[in-house]
């Protein structure tokens, strides 16, 4: 699929949206002027919602075409053995099994990417975890709201050291990370590293203090601090089963392009590259491709 086809789909979705909103405004203004009733406002809201529902299909078509054209191409140039599925996500169990994240009541995920970069297997997806909150007022009316616990990207990397105990490094302000001792012989303990600045910025829990010091070398702690400074969002590092899980809480849905914005290929490719760089930066900056300690000896 080329630029023209993607642009055609974008314009179609944009047209439906604009026409729907325009008709809603006209009808609500006419009703408002003729009947002088506040119902006019609700007609506008109804029209807006109806337009959004009608436009789900065209929007999805455009989004898929955009991703399969631009995102896929960019990913192919960086990852080997690539498997990119824009509509699929990371299985809930992958995150839940770390037992390091509050999994809430509703879980959605998309933009599944699997590939190898510098020999390191990388899996990532956009993830949204929500919790249901129900409140009841004095009249007995109940209201349900969904509160976001996590919105951002979840990445899983091969880790370059073999370890037995699990370790969690949670940047302060990340929120909703947790640890569970349920069903495990090894209990988590809060660990204080020798780096005071690192202790100030991160909370460290480990099932074994030695493994925490083995994994978190002074050099890795410095790198984690640097990465956390350069990234817009809060980070959670879970070292589990010889894998490194990284949760980036940034409230963003990556690899998306709005229907009202004309596609500027150069700009789009640059933006996608930035989104991909976010993944590869972890391998590069944390030196995950240094497999000296992974080799069987």
């Amino acid at each position: 699929m080329g630029y023209e086809e993607v642009e055609r789909l974008r314009k179609k979705a944009k047209r439906i949206e604009l026409i729907g909103i325009f008709i809603s405004i006209i009808i609500s203004v006419v009703v408002g002027v003729m009947f002088k009733t506040p119902i006019a406002f609700f007609i506008f809201v109804f029209g807006f919602v109806l337009t959004t529902i009608i436009n789900i299909g065209p929007r999805k078509k455009f989004s898929l075409a955009f991703k399969n054209t631009y995102v896929l191409k960019s990913l192919q140039s960086i990852f080997e053995n690539l498997d990119y599925r824009p509509e699929s996500g990371l299985k809930r169990d992958i995150i839940a099994n770390t037992k390091m994240m509050n999994m809430g009541d509703r879980y959605t995920s998309n933009d599944y990417i699997y590939g190898t970069y510098k020999g390191i297997s990388v899996t990532q997806a956009d993830v949204h975890i929500e919790e249901e909150h129900t409140t009841t007022d004095s009249d007995g009316h109940t209201q349900t709201t969904w509160v976001t616990l996590f919105r951002g990207r979840w990445m899983v990397f091969d880790f370059n050291k073999i370890f037995k105990a699990n370790i969690q490094v949670c940047q302060k302000g990340f929120g909703n990370a947790r640890i569970s001792n349920w069903g495990s012989d090894l209990k988590y303990k809060k660990v204080q590293m020798e780096d005071e600045d690192f202790n100030k910025r991160f909370r460290i829990f480990a099932q074994d203090e030695h493994d925490a010091f083995y994994i978190l070398t002074p050099s890795l702690m410095e790198k984690i601090k640097r990465v956390s400074e350069s990234i817009n969002g809060r980070l959670l590092f879970c070292f589990v089963d010889n894998k490194l899980h990284i949760g980036l809480q940034n409230g963003k849905d990556s690899f998306e392009h709005g229907i009202f914005k004309k596609i500027n290929e150069e700009k789009v490719i640059n933006e996608i590259s930035q989104d991909i760089k976010l993944i590869t930066d972890f391998v590069d900056q944390l030196n995950l491709d240094n497999d000296l300690f992974r080799k069987e000896v």
Binding site: Q192, E209, H210, F213, Y214, T217, P218, F293, V297
Partner: peptide, 19 residues
């Protein structure tokens, strides 16, 4: 490779002990 890993473990033990 083995000595590199052993030394890494020794460093971890040293840092934990000194801490």
């Amino acid at each position: 490779q083995s000595i590199a890993d052993v030394e890494e473990h020794l460093q971890a033990s040293r840092r934990l002990y000194n801490s």
